[in-house]
């Protein structure tokens, strides 16, 4: 298969950047998208051109490192997969493929197709800790959890933090990511202890980092490689509203030696 690639090239965060066109020929339909990019890079190295920088790690859809906005969709045209799980048979022979980095003010471009997604880490950090007793291994059934809650929590915890939700959202909102992180803890008894504080802090951090607001287009759900449901966003909104309205004022503790 032959393809015309229109790839975003940008030397660094200060560079303006732009689309550059490359031709790749003789690509197997069974090549993965990244194998195709590897072949392009080999070609570029042979020509003395700086290879295209892109994020990748596990290449099996579980680490959340890969990104790429391919022909107007994060992770390309297939539903429920990451870019590393995408194969060239999903494209037409001779097709022009646009490859761009995630676009969001909170995800600045580092180089070419690599963006800095540490804003997600800062949101997670602001969520704080979960109180879990140390010591011996607790009995598996020591704390009963309803099956539905356990399933919903696991579904939310499937989020790999890749940022496709932000990339696809017309408002560059991080609500699906944050709500999945809030939900997978809020649904379990172990996560209830700090739930009120967690949701308020994580939402405040998300807002302060410049992500947009949710206008319920549900593009995030359509593009999430782990198919996380927008029901999590409603759950986070519930948690947030309840915490804002009903949370008691925290007692100030002054420490002295």
């Amino acid at each position: 298969m032959n393809f015309t690639l229109k790839i975003w090239r940008q030397k660094n965060g200060a560079d303006k950047g732009g689309l550059v066109t490359y031709e790749v020929k003789g690509i197997s339909p069974d090549s993965s998208f990244f194998e195709m990019l590897d072949m392009l890079n080999q070609q570029l190295i042979g020509q003395g051109i700086d290879p295209v920088s892109f994020d990748h790690d596990c290449r099996e859809g579980i680490c959340g490192t890969c990104s790429l906005y391919i022909n107007g969709r994060p992770h390309g045209p297939l539903k429920g997969v990451t870019t590393c799980q995408l194969h060239m048979r999903s494209f037409r022979d001779g097709e022009a493929i646009f490859i761009e980095p995630w676009r969001c003010g909170a995800f600045p471009v580092i180089k070419d197709l690599i963006v800095d997604r540490s804003a997600f880490d800062r949101i997670i950090q602001s969520g704080g800790y979960v109180s879990v007793n140390s010591g011996g291994i607790p009995d598996a059934n020591a704390i009963p959890v309803p099956k539905h809650d356990s399933d919903a929590s696991f579904d939310a915890a499937a989020c790999i933090g890749c940022g496709a939700c932000v990339a696809s959202c017309p408002n560059a909102s991080a609500m699906l990511f944050v709500s999945s992180k809030v939900s997978h803890l809020a649904l379990l008894p172990q996560g209830r202890i700090e739930a009120e504080r967690r949701v308020q802090n994580m939402v405040a951090t998300m807002d302060s980092l410049g992500f947009g607001n949710c206008s319920n287009t549900y593009a995030c759900e359509a593009e999430c490689p782990k198919e996380i449901s927008v029901a999590n966003i409603a759950r986070m909104n519930r948690e947030f509203l309840a915490a804002k309205v009903f949370a008691e004022k925290e007692k100030k503790v002054s420490f002295s030696l």
């Binding site: 107007g72 969709r73 646009f98 761009e100 676009r103 593009a219 359509a222």
Partner: peptide, 10 residues
Amino acid sequence: YQHKSLSETS
């Protein structure tokens, strides 16, 4: 983005 969004939304 340079390419128009093709995400399935209403």
